[in-house]
């Protein structure tokens, strides 16, 4: 499946993450997953939220810079070896992964999220 992710730019400084998160919270937007690609100077905060479009609009009004990106999402069993199966499929078919992360859910499933140029191909392979 294709999953939309919201990415927000932030300087890598004390207290910079808080206003982003606070703005979302105050507007009733729930964050389902969050991770940060960090560099010494800045970070890119990547999130799945309950409403990415609304979140982007609100953040943009507050002066944050953001973008919505499509990722390939794969639901797997939250068990050892599941991720390697997914990676094997992609590697065999020459799909380059730009970045990847995952989170485990309460229902015993894990969601793997993959950013790739060949999004359609990857989605078909992982169905």
């Amino acid at each position: 499946m294709i999953i939309n992710q919201l990415a927000v730019y932030s300087q890598n400084e004390v207290g910079k993450l808080l206003p982003i998160i606070k703005t979302l919270g105050m507007n009733g937007i729930n964050i389902e997953s969050l991770n940060i690609a960090d560099t010494p100077e800045y970070g890119i905060v990547r999130m799945l939220t309950s409403d990415n479009v609304k979140a982007q609009q609100i953040l943009s009004e507050k002066g944050f810079i953001s973008t919505i990106t499509s990722l390939v999402g794969v639901e797997v069993k939250d068990e050892a070896g599941e991720l390697s199966k997914t990676l094997e499929t992609l590697a065999k078919n020459g799909i380059d992964i730009e970045y990847i992360y995952s989170y485990s859910r309460k229902d015993g499933k894990a969601l793997i999220l993959i950013k790739t140029d060949k999004i359609k191909e990857a989605e078909d392979l992982l169905k």
């Binding site: 690609a37 890119i44 973008t67």
Partner: peptide, 9 residues
């Protein structure tokens, strides 16, 4: 703006 560090770099 891009969500990828390599683009920002």
């Amino acid at each position: 703006f891009s969500d990828a560090v390599k683009d920002i770099e």
